[in-house]
Amino acid sequence: MLQRWVHTLWALLLLASVAQAQFQFFENMFGGHRQEHARQEPQNVASDSSWYQKNWEGARCNNYLCPGTLACVHFPHHCPCPHDTVEEKVELGEGSAVCVSKGGYKPGEAARKIELARKGLI
């Protein structure tokens, strides 16, 4: 009788372990570890402006805080371009400036094109 009870207990434990393995297999197969995988990867920046607002509010500047780069400068037209490797800052006069994509292969090509456009030549 004891031997039969031991065999029954072993059979139940075997069935339980097989069922557990089966559920783990299907959980993994159908994306059960996606949440675990997502925790390991960096999160995307929020689609609202909360990250920017938090950094804007935390920035300390006694002069002018540039809205695009959060750089602290003396005058608004001194703000750097956010992507200075691919943008060129062109001062338009009267203390204003814009950042435009670098054009051509020569330095100052973007400024030359803006000046031509201002004169109505292009």
Rank of each mutant, 00 (worst) to 15 (best):
A11P: 00
G108H: 03
T8G: 01
N28T: 12
A16Y: 05
F23E: 14
A38E: 13
G58F: 01
S17F: 03
I122A: 14
G93D: 06
N63Q: 12
G95Y: 08
N44Y: 08
Q22T: 08
R4D: 06
L70V: 05
L92K: 01
H33I: 01
A59N: 02
H33G: 03
Y52M: 00
L121E: 15
F75T: 14
A117L: 09
L15N: 03
P42E: 11
E27Y: 09
N44F: 09
R60F: 05
V73D: 11
L116R: 15
P80F: 01
L92H: 07
L15E: 02
R39A: 09
L121Q: 15
A11F: 07
P67G: 06
P67C: 02
E115W: 12
H7R: 10
V18D: 02
E91L: 07
W5S: 14
V6K: 10
G68C: 01
R112H: 04
E87R: 03
E36A: 14
G108V: 02
R60H: 12
H77S: 11
P67A: 06
E91F: 05
A71H: 15
N28M: 10
S50L: 14
I122D: 11
H37Y: 04
I114S: 01
G95N: 03
L2S: 10
P76L: 13
H83D: 13
V73L: 11
V45H: 09
Q40T: 11
G103W: 05
P42F: 09
W5D: 13
N28W: 09
N63M: 09
W10D: 05
L121S: 11
W56S: 00
T85A: 14
E115M: 11
H77Q: 14
F75R: 15
Q24I: 01
D48P: 05
R34S: 06
F23T: 15
E115G: 09
W10M: 08
Y52V: 00
G108A: 01
Q24Y: 02
R39E: 11
A117C: 13
A110M: 03
L70R: 12
A11V: 04
E36S: 09
W5N: 14
M29C: 06
Q24G: 04
Q22L: 07
Q22A: 10
N62G: 12
H74F: 15
F75V: 13
Q43V: 13
A11G: 08
L116P: 03
A111G: 10
H33M: 07
R34T: 04
E57D: 15
G103Q: 09
T8P: 00
S50W: 12
L14F: 10
L15D: 00
E36M: 05
W51M: 05
R118T: 11
E94C: 02
R60G: 00
D48Y: 00
L14N: 03
K102N: 04
G95V: 09
G95S: 10
S96E: 04
Q35A: 15
A111R: 07
Q20H: 06
E87A: 01
A117T: 10
E88M: 10
S49I: 06
L9A: 14
G104W: 06
R60D: 13
Q40S: 09
C81L: 03
E27A: 08
A110G: 14
